[in-house]
Amino acid sequence: MEELIISIDNLKEIARELFNNDCRVIGTTAENKFKVIDDPEQLILNPNSVPTGSSFKEFFFPKTEPLFFYKQNNSSIDLIDPVIDKSRIVVIGAKPCDAAALPIISKVFNWDYKDDLFNTRNDNSLIIGMSCHYNDEFCFCNDVGGSPENRKGSDVFLKPLADNYFKAASVTPKGEAFIKEYQKYFEKDLGKNKPLVRKEENPNHFDYDKVKTWLDNNFENKFWDTAGEMCLGCAQCAFVCPTCHCFDIVDEQNGSCAGRRAKNWDACQFSLFTKHASGHNPRDNQEKRYRQRISHKFKYYNDKFDEILCTGCGRCSRGCPVSLDILQIVEEINSLSQKSNAI
């Protein structure tokens, strides 16, 4: 297939056309936040930007969404399905650490029963990923199977070139169809625009296999007594995370005989998460809850779904109110595993 490039202006034109066709165009703007773009001029694709404060998972798995509505009339009750927005969702300029999260969480929403709330949005989506040229002390995509060039989860992948151009390639049939649909905006790559190069390679921090082996054997370990000791038990980490997917189900009355049942984000760091009605709580302190967070990400999810439940975006660490750093925690596990090997 011939190599294609596209200018930022033409990407904006695509965004405009999509917007005019009732698509939900998701991208980042000057405030470096994913949002529904209503003015394509606001769209910014900056490979050097830090990952946004929150991931774009909320457009696929909203912080709150109705499961159904109920209406009570005398003795009968009507249950009404929610109207799901079936419009196409196009994410423009997803970092590899964001794009990779969708196929990861898609597994839990589909391994047995199918969650059509998530699936409808996911099936109607198109992800345009972009190489990442950012790296800070919290980034570790390459330690968890990703990389700044990783195309997992992207349908179309962009690589930044000089003069506000991007090299464009389809990754999936969906992406190929998309490029075809909007081919008038793409140009043949004549090699005029030099690729922008990353300043330096991302360092490697830990050996995932060693970490996994250590976690396999150390559910009980004094390391856990201090790992989560300073954690305050908020859910900042889980809610900004592109892969955290736990939720709560609640009923909400609206008037005396109608209301809705909703699915809301929830997090394993909350003390009530696992508490039984009897008062018994299997994870009755923050140390245990922190062990769950780390183990779910780096062991349990992998055991069950063959995926690491972390893309190394570093959001949880950048935003933690007590500066708990997931990378440093995993690095410590890595060094513990080396020590236990030495013995």
Binding site: H245, F247, D266, C268, Y300, K304
Partner: peptide, 10 residues
């Protein structure tokens, strides 16, 4: 098998 609440390990 979705909401993550009842998990014991994997």
């Amino acid at each position: 098998g979705k909401c993550g609440r009842c998990n014991i390990g994997s």
